[in-house]
Amino acid sequence: MPSSGADVRLAVALSVKVLTGVPADRWSAPAGTLEWTCRETLEHLADDLLTYALRFGLAQPMAVPRVPLRITRDRPDGPGNVVFGDAAAGPEGLLTVVEACGGLLALAVDAAAPGTLAPHVFGASDPEGFAAMGVVETLVHTHDIAEGLGLEWEGPQDLSGRALARLFPDVAVVEAPWPSLLWATGRIDQPGRPRRTEWRWYGTPR
């Protein structure tokens, strides 16, 4: 079964569920092994979801390399985003932003013709590929944030498996799809597989 807008919505809903209710003073902790804080990582996730969706808003997505929005940073080592949550709304407000951006991506990939291609730094991809990218970004960054906040969380095996099959044809499933996705994105090591220091996905339709 291919990745779809429903997968994006489910991944985002699970992310919002586990991260809801965490006090605002805990969000400045580092997100897992990243150099960003938990809040910055959540803003980065919202940014990814929105900018993926915007590619399919163009009549000819491949006509430009990216939608030329202004990118800014809150601090020199923070993520470069076009999306920032209103600090006054707290973490719950930012989770609302993530949900809205995920919903836009879900609508965009489901509405686009299956053969439509849009640009990405790892190569042009189709709506299914961008849906899988949205799932990977959501699941993996939720893992990072949950780790930073001291929360127990595990990505669904079915979503992980579909995203792996679509974007990581070079990665064999070891143990189960979810830990294999974490290994594929450089988060953990696995038996016989040391942690990756460099990685990429392959969005080009096959």
Rank of each mutant, 00 (worst) to 15 (best):
S15R: 01
S180F: 00
F56N: 00
S180I: 01
G90E: 09
I71V: 15
T20S: 14
L42D: 03
V8D: 09
K17C: 02
V98Y: 11
D48G: 14
A11H: 07
Y202P: 00
A176D: 09
T185E: 06
A88S: 15
R73Y: 06
E128N: 09
L182N: 06
P156Q: 13
T33Q: 15
V173T: 04
G129L: 03
T138S: 15
A124M: 09
Q190A: 12
P119Y: 06
G21Y: 06
V174T: 10
S28G: 15
V12W: 03
A46M: 07
D48E: 13
A131Y: 01
D7T: 09
A176F: 02
E40G: 14
L167N: 01
F56R: 03
V82E: 12
D144G: 06
T20V: 00
A46P: 10
G32H: 03
G90D: 12
L49N: 13
G103S: 04
G123W: 01
H143Q: 12
E92T: 15
L42E: 04
A24L: 02
H141A: 07
T33I: 13
R206H: 10
P177S: 02
S3T: 12
L19T: 05
L151K: 02
L10A: 14
G80T: 05
S15T: 13
L167T: 01
G103L: 06
V97H: 04
D7Q: 09
Q190I: 00
V174Y: 01
G57W: 11
D189A: 15
L117Y: 04
L10I: 02
D77P: 03
L117H: 06
R162T: 09
L139Q: 08
V171S: 05
F56I: 01
L104P: 03
W27Y: 08
P91D: 06
A24M: 05
P179W: 03
D48L: 10
V22K: 02
R162D: 07
L34F: 10
L49Q: 10
T20W: 03
A53M: 11
R9C: 05
Q157D: 15
R196Y: 05
E92Y: 04
L182V: 02
E43D: 13
S125H: 00
G192I: 01
P177D: 07
L151Y: 02
L139W: 02
D74H: 14
L107A: 15
H120Q: 12
I145P: 01
G93M: 05
W36T: 03
P156W: 02
D77A: 13
A118W: 10
E198V: 15
C101F: 06
T142Q: 10
W178D: 04
D86L: 14
